[in-house]
Design a binder for these strands. Structure first.
Lengths: 275, 275
DNA sequence: CGAAATATTGACAATGATCAACTCTTGTGG
DNA sequence: CCACAAGAGTTGATCATTGTCAATATTTCG
């Protein structure tokens, strides 16, 4: 584990990125800020191809990614690889594995990555004592599940052309939400083989699909940067909808819901659900 | 919503199936039993093709399925359908949607179904007051995510023959865990079209794949009952592993983990994570 | 500069989709 | 209880998407 960890730093300031993550629902009070700062004091730096979580290996650390790309994948015994999801800044890693022992995926960095490393035991404590933090984590976990459902649809019912378009749009939205993409362009530090292992396609076909999108002036690539030249058309091709990614959908029900239910739901006695 | 709800019953006894679900980690005490009984007092009966959860529609009820099959799916705008997962007895439905407002899937019953209907607001209360219940729900949610990851691999990196084998094995294990399957056979109340929409295949190809499995004496079908005639070989074909489904993997880390972390983690002050 | 990784392209093969019957089962009304 | 309609299952023929193989650029990096 932790291959490629080259540096551990300590810092008592809560980075703006992290703060934003937890203030999704409501501003943090002084106590909450302090707790988070303490929790995030331990930062790790991971090299590309580090494996902070390895399939079949117990893990006791939860990471909150600060910068860098990663991926979660599973291998078949004959070597076929399927990437379950990309890991981007703001994402949690290892929550399920360290809390439930269900570790059947490997997490590997694609680029140099920095992350906060949190002992998993503390996370559960926080769920009880700091509902706002619990809300952020739960939200994150629900969002993850929604992304996986979209991925299932992408793999099951879209062809290569649609899959690629859909993925690029999703990455754009995710990266924008993390402040890492412009209006229509972002850095894509990923090989075509990796894209193939995510989209369930061969490298060759990934290459052809990208070429087609390029020829149709839907995308452009220069260096590692990818531009979506006609987002509306891509969205039509991919049948794309961006519900859970969109920050605007977060507040209404979620804030009203989680905040109310978790934070202020005091020792109210349980009511029997009568019809 | 709730098309097809024909009956609502009340009963104060906690059914054995539900009890088992919540005693996965540790026996329930009297208080917990009482709370659950109250919570589960409201039962609904759903006809086939009822839609307790509809994409894009807010939902305020969480269901815990007692009997019957269902499915969660998404539609593309041109009508293509992808089933994200089957819903079986013991599964929760609508947790994410009612708690987070992220409702982008439709849940539909495949057979007549009975379920406990729980107002979602109460679920969050329970998380705080009854850790054992929270543990069961969280576990369930983590298991769901693990199943979805497996489905992603199935769709992305397995061919039709492997996919079908893998699905049948997974259903066997899930149904066995719910006490609804024998050593190697179970009722499969599902059309080939439904199987296709789950596996990302056309009806025709589902038919051919099943025929092949039949011809190779790997499965047998009579009426709605399906028998796996050579589980070892099917597992080899599908590269099947049954980690999260297996009851035996539940106790060690999970029980020790969740129980300790949630139930007994009192007001212990947060320790700063120093290296 | 040279090796290794990555990208690109063509030729061909294979998996799976589509189309179009046709059969079998199931349920319903007369 | 039968006839019939609708749904589900089955099969062959053909087409399309995507994979595999192999060769050749091109880029990256020590």
């Amino acid at each position: 584990m932790l291959d490629g960890v080259t540096q551990v730093t300590h810092c008592n300031r809560l980075s703006p990125a992290f703060r934003a993550k937890f203030e999704m629902f409501a501003p943090l009070d002084a106590d909450e800020s302090a707790v988070l700062s303490a929790l995030f004091a331990r930062r790790v730096r991971l090299e590309p191809h580090a494996e902070p979580v390895v399939e079949g290996t117990p893990s006791t650390t939860v990471y909150l990614v600060e910068s860098g790309w990663g991926m979660r994948y599973k291998l078949l015994s004959d070597g076929r690889r399927q990437i379950v999801n990309f890991v981007l800044p703001g994402d949690f890693v290892g929550l399920r594995s360290s809390l439930f022992g269900i570790q059947n995926q490997t997490v590997e960095t694609l680029t140099a990555t920095t992350a906060a490393a949190i002992p998993s035991a503390q996370i559960m404590d926080l769920f009880r004592t700091h509902p706002k933090i619990a809300a952020a984590v739960s939200w994150s976990s629900a969002r993850e599940e929604a992304m996986m459902a979209d991925h299932i649809v992408r793999l099951g019912r879209r062809n290569a052309y649609e899959r690629m378009s859909h993925l690029l749009l999703e990455l754009l939205r995710r990266l924008q939400a993390a402040g890492l993409a412009g209006d229509r362009a972002f850095d894509l530090p990923v090989t075509q083989e990796t894209l193939g292992d995510f989209l369930g396609l061969s490298v060759v076909h990934v290459n052809r699909t990208l070429r087609r999108l390029r020829e149709e002036k839907l995308i452009a690539q220069e260096n590692g940067r990818l531009s979506l030249l006609d987002i509306a058309r891509l969205e039509a091709i991919a049948d794309f909808e961006s519900p859970y990614l969109d920050h605007r959908m977060t507040p209404p029900r979620t804030q009203a819901g989680l905040e109310r239910m978790q934070a202020e739901a005091a020792e109210r006695p349980l009511e029997v659900a009568a019809s």
